[in-house]
């Protein structure tokens, strides 16, 4: 537990002092969303209809953008070797790094998302559900992304490769995240979709540290 919190603190401190990653992710998120009204046209009805999907896809791509740096910096400067050979279980360390990644990229995305909802004329009923679905969904992105980031350490063109490996696995999250918001807009119950997202989150929390730790071990071998 001690190792968990100290690694978490270290990663957060690094992120805050360097500062560029979170800002970059948020700016990317906003720019991608802004492209849609410009390309589709400023019609309020169409934009309101697609707003949830656009925000979700943009959040997914923004999370993707920072994913390949999750372990790469530690891999390059050698601290990953030390983390893996330390007496603490690698799974716990992976969880700490994933949590730090989510706090520095996923959480800012959620905070900005209502603003983007306003840009895209998202109706008032959808806001809370969108925030809820992103709250449940973005940690899944970080967890699954960790597997891809660990697998592609040291690969050629790892940035492209990780998107190819991980984006298909994000499809279910995307489907349920967007359908929760759509259900809210149509006045239907959103509980089922949110519960399924919660189940995905629990499942990913259980599975991802094992797979990522296995991948890390073979990467530093």
């Amino acid at each position: 537990m001690n190792a968990f919190s100290s690694l978490l603190k270290r990663d957060l401190r690094l992120a805050f002092r360097q500062g560029s990653d979170s800002v970059m992710v948020i700016v990317f998120f906003i720019v991608v969303v802004v492209l849609f009204p410009l390309s589709i046209g400023p019609e309020q009805k169409i934009l309101a209809r697609i707003s949830a999907g656009v925000i979700w896809v943009a959040a997914l791509l923004a999370a993707m953008l920072s994913m390949d740096r999750l372990f790469a910096a530690d891999y390059e400067d050698g601290s990953l070797d030390l983390l893996v050979i330390s007496p603490h279980p690698t799974e716990i360390l992976v969880l700490a790094k994933v949590l730090a990644h989510w706090l520095t990229t996923g959480l800012p995305l959620i905070i900005v998302s209502p603003l983007l909802g306003v840009f895209l004329y998202l109706q008032a009923d959808g806001f809370w559900v969108m925030i809820m679905s992103l709250l449940l969904g973005t940690p899944i992105l970080s967890l699954i992304g960790a597997i891809g980031a660990a697998l592609t350490l040291g690969a050629r063109r790892s940035g492209v490769l990780i998107s190819l490996l991980i984006l298909p696995l994000f499809i279910p999250v995307l489907i349920f995240g967007v359908s929760a918001v759509d259900a809210a807009l149509m006045g239907l119950p959103t509980r089922p979709q949110l519960l399924i997202l919660g189940a995905f989150l629990l499942f990913a929390t259980a599975l991802s540290p094992w797979a990522s730790a296995a991948a890390l071990r073979q990467a530093v071998e």
Binding site: A155, S158, L164
Partner: peptide
Amino acid sequence: VLHDAFDDTSRGARAASILAVV
């Protein structure tokens, strides 16, 4: 793709195996 992404073929094989299991 992952199988062929590494200069060291055995690393590619192991990484791809983990992906297959996941």
